[in-house]
Nucleic acid binder design. Structure first.
Length: 574
RNA sequence: CGGGGUGUAGCGCAGCCUGGUAGCGCGCAUCGUUCGGGACGAUGAGGUCCCGGGUUCAAAUCCCGGCACCCCGACCA
């Protein structure tokens, strides 16, 4: 394609409101433009990348026998009421009314409508298994869109749904999708980790996420090199180390003793004041679960993971306001603890499991102004319930093998869920089995975000000049830069190379714009196609230059050898 | 949900404190000179200073209200 026939508005300066590398480069390279918060325009280059990603996805989905179709994005509310999600999901769902006042929603995902279709059309176990998919828009009114196309309110998703007679069938469908996903990410050239994840608002028994490492990502995952354990920190279990300096019993008290701690509120302040390690502190956090206050305890050097608390309590949780803390404990924020609560208190106290190990003494808030307790022993001085509440930290022990866990930050590019009958039952998606018995279909749900794949690729592969696309998803395979647009020899050579490379099945961008060479090189580096061919003055001697984007190493080749050399470089590109 | 920030030409910004003819760089248009790593000169086009109200002789600037966008936190009690 000729650059003069393409719309690729590149920009020299970073957009002022961009933070993530991928956001900056995708805007600067003329791939995307923001339309509103979390709503993006895909420009021609960006759309080409998306199309190539989608093509890979389609090939792999078709390869496991999944069937593409297209579902509506505007749904009557009653389908969502049937599954219970109309009420379970809050403001994240776009809601509207039609002219007749009928409640409608914009689809956040498509379990309901696929289950609805299955309920109408699948009648016999002979119709199973089925796997249906689509590439369709999703609408989610995110509280905080961010990172360019990383977290948006309207986005394309490949979502597929499997329909099986039983759990064994679901397990097969799940594994098939898992294999297809591995191949998709491999082909797209991005690094991913498949990790155990929380099923969240999708519900269901088992779920995995595919996390692509990036500093711009919003997820953290715990990985074990030794045994392969991999889980999102929202549910990763881990073995907490006891720091050496905190292993000795520091006070030797037979009962908790009050110590004045004027104006010392934070773990940092109190532990420094008392001269102990943070691991000898109990961090007491008051939350409101449903409408009941609860106290969650973790060790001073640990972090509470809210979703673990929420899962344990089976309800939404939020940090208590200061006045709620006062009402629940009789103490100000900073001085609350599990011992010495008001006699009438019915506060539920939940301690992280790491506090259960060993008769260790801790310091904790005394529920009195400017006072802490030292010599607190869990199980002796108070009896909490125990749960896994803390977020896994770098260096914690693997729950399977005990080796050290690594924590990696990344972008969630895909997820897969075993849904079971969560949607088929309420929507009446049943089939008759061999014995003529009516059984709910066992479903799975599998999503991939193509734009997040693109962003993850940019996050992982860029340099100070711009993007270095993986070859499978680059907007073009080869970028021909013609130095003098009005030079007939250069035009002739460029055209011939363009056509010859095209004939080899490569996508070619031919920059014959009347720009200065510097601008063209800068654009080529920014846009990041795998191989560049430079046609300049030496074309008259039958010489051109080829250069892989990744290494930038230039080599001069004869025009006659150029196609072969480009193909070789392209093949060698990741 | 809480906190912070920003809205001035297509993009990036200054001007605001201390009210008085709206500016700079890039980009864009025309002409000329240039032409292998984001050229130079000349000329020119381009503005609802986010919106609404208020104060004032006078508001981009001060005050009030709203909207939009961005960032941080959503635990460190």
């Amino acid at each position: 394609m000729r650059a003069t026939a393409l719309f690729m508005p590149t920009v020299k300066e970073d957009p002022a409101d961009a933070e993530a590398v991928s956001h900056k480069l995708m805007v600067r390279g003329g791939f995307v433009r923001q339309f509103a918060a979390g709503i993006y325009i895909m420009l021609p280059l960006g759309w080409r990348v998306m199309q190539r990603i989608c093509r890979i996805i389609r090939e792999e989905m078709d390869g496991i026998g999944a069937l593409e179709m297209s579902m509506p994005t505007m749904h009557p509310a009653d389908v969502w009421q049937a599954s219970g999600r109309y009420d379970a999901i809050g403001q994240e769902m776009f809601r509207l009314q039609d002219r007749g006042g009928r409640e409608m929603v914009l689809a956040m995902t498509h379990e309901e409508v696929f289950a609805w279709l299955a309920s109408r059309e699948l009648r016999s176990y002979r119709d199973l298994p089925q796997a249906w998919y689509q590439l369709q828009l999703k609408f989610r009114d995110e509280p905080r869109p961010k990172g360019g196309v990383l977290r948006v309110r309207e986005f394309l998703m490949k979502d597929s749904y499997s329909f099986d007679l039983d759990e064994a069938g679901l397990a097969r469908s799940y594994e098939m999708h898992s294999g297809a996903y591995d191949r998709i990410f491999e082909r797209c050239g991005i690094e991913v980790f498949r990790v155990e994840s929380d099923s969240g608002f999708m519900g269901g028994a088992q779920a995995h996420e595919y996390i692509s490492p990036s500093a711009a990502g919003e997820d953290r995952i715990a990985l074990c090199d030794a045994c392969g354990y991999a889980a999102n920190v929202e549910l990763a279990r881990s073995v907490a180390h006891i720091p050496d300096e905190a292993t000795e019993i520091p006070w030797g008290e037979t009962a908790p003793r009050e110590v004045p701690t004027p104006e010392k509120r934070t773990i940092e302040e109190v532990s420094a004041f008392l001269g102990v390690n943070a691991a000898s502190m109990i961090k007491a956090l008051v939350y409101v679960a449903g409408d009941q206050p609860v106290m969650a305890l973790v060790r001073g050097d640990h972090s509470l993971h809210e979703s673990k608390l929420a899962r344990h309590l089976r309800t939404e949780v939020r940090p208590a306001h200061p006045e709620e803390v006062l009402a629940a404990t009789g103490a100000e924020v900073g001085f609350v603890g599990p011992v010495g609560l008001p006699v009438v208190s019915t506060l539920r106290v939940i301690a992280d499991e790491s506090l259960q190990s060993g008769p260790r003494e801790y310091a904790a808030g005394a529920n009195k102004p400017h006072t802490h307790l030292v010599g607190v022993v869990v199980g002796r001085d108070f009896q909490p319930e125990y749960a896994d509440l803390r977020e896994a930290q770098e260096g914690d022990g693997c729950p399977q093998c005990g080796q050290s866990l690594a924590i990696v930050q990344g972008i969630e590019v895909a997820n897969i869920f075993k849904l079971g009958t969560k949607y088929s039952e309420p929507l009446g998606a049943t089939v008759l089995d061999e014995s003529g018995r009516e059984r709910p279909i066992v479903m799975g749900s599998y999503g991939i975000g193509p734009a997040r794949i693109a962003a993850a690729a940019v996050e992982q592969r860029n340099d100070e000049r711009g993007i270095i696309w993986p070859k499978a998803i680059a907007p073009f395979d080869v970028h021909i830069v013609q130095i003098q647009a009005d030079d007939p020899v250069q035009s002739e050579v460029s055209l011939a190379l363009h056509d010859a490379l095209l004939a080899e099945g490569l996508e070619v961008l031919w920059d014959e714009r009347e720009e200065r060479p510097g601008s063209k090189f800068a654009d080529a580096d920014l846009i990041g196609c795998p191989v560049r061919v430079t046609v300049g003055k030496k074309a008259i001697d039958g010489l051109v230059e080829v250069q892989p984007r990744r290494t930038g190493e230039r080599e001069e080749v004869a025009v006659g050898q150029c196609v072969a050399r480009v193909l070789a470089l392209w093949e060698a590109t990741a």
